[in-house]
Each structure stands twice: as structure tokens, then as C-alpha cells.
Design a protein around this nucleic acid. Sequence first.
DNA 1: TTCTCGATTACCT
DNA 2: GGTAATCGAGAAT
Length: 196
Amino acid sequence: MTPRARAVGRAFFDRPPEAVAADIIGCGLSFQGSGGIIVEAEAYGQQDPASHSFRGETPRSRAMFGPPGTIYVYLIHGLHWCLNLVAEGRGTGAAVLIRAIEPTHGLDAMRRRRGLEDDRLLCAGPGRLTQALGITGALNGLPLRSAGVHVGRRREQPQIARVPRIGISQATDLPWRMVARGSRFVSRPIPRSTSA
DNA sequence: TTCTCGATTACCT
DNA sequence: GGTAATCGAGAAT
């Protein structure tokens, strides 16, 4: 078992979602003995038509309006859970979607839950990573700590690409998808046109 | 109450 | 490349 990095503090999440999404790349993510390094994340804000918080607080989006560091988990297409972490001050409806991690520990449990041997596809996508980690809507609305979700500080600074988000039909021009350059564990490759 | 569609994935041709 | 699976939230009626 590798030594666990010290957890990020609440101040880490109390910033604009695009800043949190960029800085969370390279951080560790663990839940019940399984986890890895975050290699892909997307930012969502309240002034953002693609965000669930865009139309204000509703029964589903309530967790997005909680304090920074709150977990927002929702079901997409009736079958996949997506994990978000609330950012930027209580009530702003800002959050970061965790889209992919590079699996580093608890691999056997994750392979079992995914019914898959290919480590590259174990956590490469928001629905895949929640299935691999065993994360469900039961965690929705909980603070990270009480949910048992651990986000550890970065050990090294990764190269990050800022590119447009995936799977949305609105505000597709915002470069709010953050991807670790060179990682083979992302859900989709970095678009060729990206330079920075 | 009914209808539409989704921050996805896996499997098909 | 295309699409079925599967169901709840939110909008429309």
C-alpha cells in the first residue's frame, strides 16, 4: 500500500470551478481502498447552460448548492452514476465532474466490479470510474470526509490541456475540460487542434 | 399526468 | 460509423 497523500482542504474547493478542475488534475482519489490519480475533469458553473444548476436549485441539483467539497452524484441515462465535487462557495451551483482516473490501487476490486481486465478502460469515463470505485447516489449530498472519499494533494505538477467539454449540447465552446497530457487513461483523446 | 431527453457506455455493422 | 439500454428530472399539458 502506497502512503496516502494528505487530503486537500476545504479552501481547495472554495474557488471557481475551472480553477478547481485544473488543479485537481494529478491529485489522488480514493474510495474504500480503491483509487488512482485524477487525469480528467470538467468544470460546471451556474451561469452555464450545460450545468444542472443553470435553472436554479431543484431536488436533483440541491447538492450542487451545498458547501465546497460536497459530493454531487447523479444518474445519467438511467444507468450510470457521475461523480462531481462542489466548488466555489455555498450556493453558487458550481461543481467539477471527475471524468477519469489512472488506477493505482485496489485494482483487483475495480477489475471485479467492472468485469474487465483492461486497466486502460477501468476508470476512463465518468460512468466507468464510479462503477470501478463502487460509488453510487448513496453519497449524494455528503461532505467528502463523511462519505469516505479521499482527495489527496498532488505530488507532481502535470502538463494540463484545456479543451472543450464532452457530451453536452450547450456552451460547447468553453474550454472547461482539463486533461493530463500524455495520459493513456483519459476517456477521449485531446483534440488535435489544441496547442497550449 | 404525460412526454422528452440526457455531463454514458457497450456492442453492433 | 450507429444505436439500444434504461429511468428519473424537468417541462409541458
